[in-house]
Simulated assay, not measured.
Amino acid sequence: MTNLNPSRRVPRRRLHPKRTLSPEEIAQWYAERAAFRQRCQPIFDRLKPELIKTHYNWYMAVEPDSGEYFIEKDSLAAGKICRQKHPNAIPHVFRINETGVCGTI
């Protein structure tokens, strides 16, 4: 019979305990993301009906300050093109379908 050595499991901990966010900081981050999406949403809603016909399930990266958008088959490629044109801006990526997102939970 084989002797089994019980191995002691090391408890998991945070990788960077000094970099934890307070609940207020987390709530602020979510609020900023929601406000950013609300700035990008009108551009997406304006273009969505015509793009669904030709580019269904492609991705659209929107830069809200300039109003420019970039369409690609891959979400990372769309974001990369947007960042090349606007290096200091953060794009919001939508999927070109009825909801603008990749799926539901």
Rank of each mutant, 00 (worst) to 15 (best):
M1Q: 10
M1P: 08
N3Q: 14
N5V: 15
N5K: 14
N5R: 14
P6W: 13
P6G: 14
S7L: 13
S7F: 12
R9G: 14
V10A: 04
V10R: 02
V10C: 09
P11A: 06
P11W: 10
R13I: 13
R14G: 08
R14F: 13
L15T: 07
H16Y: 09
H16L: 10
P17Y: 03
P17W: 04
T20I: 15
S22V: 11
P23D: 09
P23I: 07
E24H: 09
I26G: 06
A27S: 10
A27K: 09
Q28D: 15
Y30G: 11
Y30D: 14
A31I: 06
E32A: 10
C40L: 03
Q41M: 07
P42S: 03
P42N: 03
P42D: 03
P42H: 02
I43T: 05
F44T: 03
R46M: 12
L47I: 12
K48L: 07
P49Y: 02
P49D: 06
E50H: 11
E50V: 12
E50T: 11
E50Y: 11
I52G: 05
I52L: 13
T54K: 09
T54M: 10
H55E: 09
Y56C: 15
Y56M: 12
Y59W: 04
V62Q: 00
E63L: 08
E63W: 01
P64C: 02
D65Y: 07
S66P: 00
G67T: 05
F70G: 00
I71D: 01
E72I: 01
D74R: 06
L76P: 12
G79T: 02
G79W: 00
G79M: 01
K80S: 06
K80E: 10
C82W: 00
R83N: 05
K85F: 06
H86A: 03
H86N: 08
H86C: 07
N88E: 08
N88M: 09
A89H: 12
H92W: 08
V93I: 05
V93N: 01
R95D: 03
R95P: 05
R95F: 02
I96W: 02
N97W: 02
N97G: 04
N97S: 01
T99H: 07
T99G: 05
G100A: 04
V101S: 11
V101P: 08
V101Q: 13
V101A: 14
C102Q: 15
C102V: 11
G103Q: 14
I105K: 10
